[in-house]
Design a protein around this nucleic acid. Sequence first.
DNA 1: ATGGTTTTTACTGCGTC
DNA 2: GACGCGGTAAAAACCAT
Length: 322
Amino acid sequence: MQNARTRARQHEERESTSEDTTESTDECPECGGLVVADEEHGESVCMDCGLVVDEDDIDRGPEWRAFDSQEKDQKSRVGAPTTNTMHDKGLSTNIDWRDKDAYGNSLSSNQRQKMQRLRKWNERFRTRDAKERNLKQALGEIDRMASALGLPDNVREMASVIYRRALEEDLLPGRSIEGVSTSCVYAAARQAGVPRSLDEITDVSRVEKAEIARTYRYVIRELGLEVRPADPESYVPRFASSLGLSDEAEHRARDLLKTAKDKGVHSGKSPVGLAAAAVYAAALLTNEKTTQAKVSEVADISEVTIRNRYHELLEAEDTLPA
DNA sequence: ATGGTTTTTACTGCGTC
DNA sequence: GACGCGGTAAAAACCAT
């Protein structure tokens, strides 16, 4: 057995050593209760025990106050939000495709042709140079994959930002747009705490797994992105819900993973496998009906691995003084 | 390329509904 | 008998050196 650190580094996806003590953001470190944000005081407070988990939050509201609607209109200076998921951040001009004027009347054929030409040139200018076109295509890909994986908008946003940076730093030459955008999605999903396994990513990408992994490592290294090993717990909700398990079982699964973490059982093992095993074990403990086969299917992990892991989980549970 | 480790594949035996 | 489950051995995949 090599030492734990080396082991953990072996597999990108793997959980790291027991020295990593970071708490997930929405659970109280004291009692495990739910932590909610109190915007008025800029604090994050545990709902169960009242512990203030985080202070000095950033207030993202407007810095001005308005006392009536008129003032609100005057002081407000907000347009459409810019977004990184569009290659021009949604800032450039768009010419409507409908051949209607501002009053809704149809255009004469003369005007229609003119508008057609304008649209064409506007589009050409918008995506003028190679980088813009590159971005446009990549962002399309990112969006497609994120949708296919059911990832939320903020992940798309993150992936887009990462891609922009990659483009800025000239990381693209020699690498496919597909590969890099896939890697960005993978990285963003992991950073956002809603990881998808490499296999899941591979399914929706047009690029092979090996290339994704390679490109991903490259991008991470070049951009100096810090991505912690995936937390098995972050897979639990997804698995539990696709198996139709109760909240109690889900919670049980998390507990199992926590004690396993304390025991350091998880080092060097695939987080997905751990999560799958925890979900299965939790279903057993709460007398809910599932089979290893089903868990193995939704988690995309072999039954053997589930068996091995869940033995280890239960063992860790037993040997704990609790 | 090699070696050590984990995961997968394939197969077998056991108990139960 | 099909099914769920446990175990094993060999193959494959993976990472670090």
